[in-house]
């Protein structure tokens, strides 16, 4: 390779490597802010601030959803499989909200450390299959509705 071109090649590599390192360090320093939501472990451990608008996320614990008979109020727990915290929400839930599915809630923790949500988003998983296959899987002991799949929220 011609020396001039070799020098330009090194310059190009320099640009790519150093801009990547710079942006990588920035992303690393801001990693907590890049997360869209607090995982259950940080809500329970008290790392998440109280009375501040935050988002939290986790798996809707199967059997924890209680719907009020007279109002739109819904209570449920979000879990990471180890710890969980209660959420209360008044409003219409998205269609894909269900027990054993992941959800992201937007709101704040009150003094009793109950998450008062003003918005609930369903977090879809990466699995796609026809209804017959899902049916067959649940009959053959597949635990499709029991857990939120390979969810790892740092607990």
């Amino acid at each position: 390779m011609h020396p001039v071109r070799r020098q330009r090649l090194l310059l190009v590599l320099f640009i790519v490597v150093f801009s990547s390192v710079a942006i990588g360090l920035m992303a690393y320093a801001l990693r907590a802010n890049i997360n869209l939501f607090y995982p259950p472990s940080q809500i329970v451990s008290g790392e998440a601030p109280v009375n501040t608008r935050i988002r939290a996320g986790g798996c809707v614990r199967p059997g924890s959803v209680e719907r009020s008979k007279t109002t739109l109020e819904t209570r449920f727990s979000l879990t990471d499989g180890v710890v969980d915290f209660p959420v209360v929400y008044s409003g219409i839930l998205p269609d894909l909200f269900a027990e054993g599915e992941a959800a992201v809630v937007n709101g704040s923790l009150n003094k009793e450390r109950v998450f008062v949500a003003t918005e609930v988003l369903a977090k879809h998983d990466e699995e796609y299959m026809p209804p017959e296959v899902a049916e067959a899987m649940s009959q053959s002991g597949g635990d499709h509705d029991e857990t939120c799949g390979g969810m790892a929220y740092g607990s």
């Binding site: 998205p94 269609d95 918005e119 988003l121």
Partner: peptide, 12 residues
């Protein structure tokens, strides 16, 4: 919008 319940989220 129909799946999550929102058009947009400022996620990564």
């Amino acid at each position: 919008k129909p799946t999550w319940g929102t058009w947009w989220a400022w996620d990564a």
